[in-house]
Amino acid sequence: MTADFEAEARALRERYPRGTTALIPILHLWQGKEGYVSQEGIERTARVMELPPAYVESVLTFYTLFRREPTGRYRIQVCKNLSCMLQGADETIAHLARRLGIEPGETTPDGLVTLEAVECLAACDEAPAAQVNFRWCPRLTPEAADRLIDALAQGDAEVVRRYG
C-alpha cells in the first residue's frame, strides 16, 4: 500500500501542479486506502506535498468527509436535513443506531459499519437520502435500513458490488 500511495500521490501532484491544490486529492487517496486519515497518513501526505504535518492537519480537520478514527468497512451517511426530516430521517437514524448499538459518528465493534447523520446530500427527492461509501442509497426508511444492514452483514454479492 505504501509504495502505491507514494506513486499515486506523486501523480496527483503532477495532475494538480499549482499551489497546494493536490493536498485534498491526496488526503482522499489516503482515506480511500485506509478508511480514515491516521497520523501516518498526515505525515506521508505532508512529505509528498512538502508541507508541515501541522498544516496538513489544519486543512484535514476543516472538512467533514475526512475521518480521524478507524472507520467501518461500510460508511453509512444518512441525511438529517429538513426535507429528509420531513420524510422520517430521524426515525431512520434512531432505528439504525438502535439496531447497530452505536451512536451516529461511531463504528460497530466488528468494524462493519460506521453510522453518520449528515447534512443535505442534494438528494432530497429521494428522502430519507443516504449514501454508503459515497454511493447513493435512496429512500432509506427504517425497513429499507434493516434490509441494507442484513445484506451488508451477509456479504450479499450485489450489495458488495455496489458499495464494496
Binding site: 497546494t20 491544490t21 472538512y63
Partner: peptide, 23 residues
C-alpha cells in the same frame, strides 16, 4: 476537483481557497 464536505465551500471565495488546497 473533489471537495471534502463543507457547505461554506459553495461560497465562491471559500471555494477558491479550497481549490487551492486550504481551509
Amino acid at each position: 476537483y473533489r471537495g471534502a464536505g463543507a457547505y461554506i465551500c459553495g461560497e465562491e471565495s471559500a471555494l477558491l481557497e479550497s481549490l487551492e488546497g486550504k481551509r
